[in-house]
Amino acid sequence: MIHVTDLKKTFGNEHALKGIDFEVGKGEVFGLLGPSGSGKTTTIKLLTGEFRPDGGDIEVNGTGSRHFGRTSYVRNLGILSDKSALYERLTVRDNLELFRKLYGAPKQVVDEVLDKVGLADEKDKRVSKLSKGMKQRVLLCKAVLHKPDVMFLDEPTSALDPTTTEKIHEMLEDLKGEGTTIMLTTHNMDEATRLCDRVAFLHEGVIKETGAPEVLRHKYKRNEVHLTYEDGGVRTVGRDEENSGLLRAALFDESVIDIRTDFPTLGEVFKKVTGKELV
């Protein structure tokens, strides 16, 4: 669905992307993770046709980047970026009706998507009267009402309250269930772990690692085992040849009530791979 090969982008003397490669399959949720300034938003803007690449190839849904301006291309995209905005003087319904008509979507979709995000009762309210979280939910409705094949979400839950974040995650899980290909950028590791089938770590314009969150956590796990004893004591031993006898014995030791291997969080994996915190 999305093929990116040796993608480069330069702004003046600054190399925002230094030749990145990745692929996203149909119906897959792919997360691009990285700290601010790592090139995440630039990648999204290149994929949505807002920027032109300085090198490399992009193909989304069978369309090459030269044809990203075509109506047939944008018709099948859903975009939610940190700069997405609504018409504040108009009602929620007016805003969504505009985009429904621009995309040629059926009439009932406006009520359907508002129902899904729990904003059915707010449809006749002016956008200026809504909270930030509500506006973000309306923006998500705007991005999905034409049932796009591919969605690009740039920091979809950035600075939102937990309830709104949960609503948005639920809606994205529904879209995933419907087979929509989703590419999102985030520095929220819980979000990436929950939603993404695969993630890529983008650091200083280079992809340092790619894989499924669980696979990456397993790959970079600490080689330690924690044994918890009934008296509350915890013993940490290396998972190696030297301790193999002890670990085997612990399985049958009745005073050992818990044997646990610690898996790092995705944020810890990122730090291990790039040497930087994911903030």
């Binding site: 700069k83 997405s84 905005a85 995309y103």
Partner: peptide, 14 residues
């Protein structure tokens, strides 16, 4: 100013 133009230009509207 309000970045709504971006949304329109990212839609099928020319």
């Amino acid at each position: 100013e309000k970045d709504t133009l971006r949304g329109l230009l990212q839609s099928p509207a020319s």
